[in-house]
Design a protein around this nucleic acid. Structure first.
Lengths: 127, 127
DNA sequence: TTCAATAGTTCCGAACATATGAACAGTTGA
DNA sequence: TCAACTGTTCATATGTTCGGAACTATTGAA
């Protein structure tokens, strides 16, 4: 099995980051890793946003995040431990990651408002 | 010829924006439109970053930017006038566009430093 | 009106990218 | 030694993107 490749921070590109995070499954995974601060193994994400993802697909998603320079993956025995490379990227592209993660949060809030609308305080419901 | 479709701002997604801007040609075009503030027609971009782009490809790139909600295209006689939808997006996803455009600028600066290195003030050049 | 020039779009085949099941590899503990 | 577990790789099917050729729409000139 080939070793896990990580680009050096100087080789990380904006296009690579944007491409990696342009996928709904990958942003969800990445936002989770960033948000929780701590590490995660891949299998935690076999269910993302209410659907099951094959583990081969998941493996490729992690590879995409890794090769874009967004996460660092280290084998820990039988598992792989994933941590974000936030501070390195923040140093190279200030504000980029926070803005994307924040936008993602805003969007998921407005999506849940559409899927699970609150009842209006007064007045009649729309037909 | 079908009319030019523009999503309403509420339908604009982070994924869509990131995907559109994950392409080097498209960020270059978009950064130019944003930077210059004013409008542009497509043919201004037949040469982007020192290479010629077929106009069919260019048309698709503009479509991608348009359908991601990043630009507004209006037919003006024989041309199409493109303007950025910056302020709408800023309103929905604060800080996202500035962060991406800024990161793109940082990267293009470091790239030009690699391609056209300045001579060091003293000492010998690397072999 | 007719025609040529111009600016973009659409179509379609080739090249490229992505998703997934099946097979495989490496580590652990029994 | 071996089964269980986590994750990777391979093969293939499906999708997406690129770019040349053909097309559409508008304009201005004859």
């Amino acid at each position: 099995m080939r070793p896990l490749f990580h680009p050096s921070i100087g080789d990380v590109t904006v296009e690579g980051i944007l491409h990696a995070l342009a996928d709904p499954v990958r942003v969800a995974i990445y936002a989770d890793i960033v948000g929780s601060g701590c590490s995660h193994n891949c299998s935690n994400f076999l269910n993302v946003s209410e659907k099951t993802i094959p583990k081969s697909t998941l493996s490729l998603h992690f590879r995409a995040l890794r090769e874009a320079g967004l996460i660092r993956s280290e084998r820990r025995g039988v598992e792989v431990q994933n941590t974000s490379r936030c501070s390195e990227i923040e140093n190279r592209f200030p504000g980029l990651i926070p803005a994307i993660v924040n936008a993602h949060k805003i969007q998921s809030q407005s999506e849940s408002r559409v899927r699970h609308p609150r009842r209006r305080k007064s007045g009649r419901q729309a037909a």
